[in-house]
Design a protein around this nucleic acid. Sequence first.
DNA 1: CTAGGGTTAG
Length: 491
Amino acid sequence: MFQKRFRLHLLPLSEKYYQFPLLGNAVTLSDGVQQPSDATIAKLVLESDPLTLSEALCMPTIQWAPELVNRVLKRLWNHGPKALQFFKHLDRHPSYIHCSSSFDHAVDIAARMHDYNAAWALVGRMRSLRRGPTHRTFAILGERYAANGKPHRTVRTFLSMHEHGCRQDLNSFNTVLDVLCKSKRVEMAHTLLKTFRSRFRLDSVSYNIIANGYCLIKRTPMALQVLKEMVQRGINPTMITYNTLLKGYFRSSQIKEAWEFYLEMKKRKCEIDVVTYTTVIHGFGVAGEVKKSRRVFDEMVKEGVAPSVATCNALIQVLCKKDSVESAVVVFEEMVRKGLCVPNLVTYNVVIRGFCHVGDMERALGFMGRMGEHGLRASVQTYNVVIRYFCDAGEIEKGLEMFGKMKDEPCLPNLDTYNVVISAMFLRKKSEDLVVAGKLLMEMVDRGFLPRKFTFNRVLNGLAITGNQDFAKEILRKQGRCGRVVRRLKL
DNA sequence: CTAGGGTTAG
């Protein structure tokens, strides 16, 4: 049925482009053929069911390339089942072969849905195609295990790497340490480090990771202990070590210690960098010392250190929270005007949240509309903020309207979005709202999200007491069939 | 995807 043809050699060899052949007539690729964008393809995948998918994707003008596939997968990130359907469909393509980064995305998506069997099957497939698995693949698996509360499996996965044709080295070891620390399992990471000290030549990265881990759980004394430990072993602390500790002080609200540490850094003539300044600006601001934040910002400019977007975002956020949105917007406009830095998604989300917080939804939406000026589009987070504040203000209809708008992008709702919208369906005490909540609940499960037991029970109870028992039963029945995801809820 | 700085509610 499929014929292998149209392999294009016009492009760099590293980027292999293929074309999906048209059934029947041969098609010559002429210049100016409309190549569907990743958004178009994502929509196609979302609109077609598994049976019509292959037909829908069999368009002659699609030239598959790793970058395109990855962008589509990213678009479908919040619809795991569809994303994997798409990936598997393309995996059966007669000539296109997924590259390792696409496999990594697929592994990530499967593992995020707690479907480890599927994830490992993909690892196997990768290996048989000689496309991996790579160190990155194992980093992803380890991260998912840790994030899903299975840190022991993170370690086991690391220890089994070599059985899948991937050697353990210091980098992959450091990654495991980091993944454990980021999921608050510092003790475990520290023990692991001590166990493998002789097997790998640990470097400053290893120790920085552990120190940061202790800072994340606000145990700065232990972080200092790690610093001592590394010095004893003859490894020099770096700028990153100091910045990590500085941040640690702020995180555990040790403002005085943070300030002293900062002064000490300056006195020791170690080059204070942009990260140091950003940390201090943010730290003081969060502690309510906005004036000091501003002063440090000016000082940094005076010292000739260029602020980054992160620095600007830190100051803008601090002004929003502890001063006023107005002053934050002044800074925002000034930065854009002076070209000090280019606003990114975070910048916009911060400002938009600031307006929402003072109830100025109109200007919040205005800024949302302005995002295009900087080549940006509203993200899920942007929508989540706006929807949340509309609902909090009792404007449920407008919240739902925004929720509906996401579909056009397409910007798929994530777990937070569903939680916000479903909670809002309880505010008006209307029976119709609960039916909507029920539908949303089914939709989120279909999309690979695992609602909290609390959400599930709340919706079912709500439906039961508003005379929608039949619908409640239907949900229960459907979900009962729906496989392992919901079985974990132990209804 | 080898470490540090901006989005997450009070």
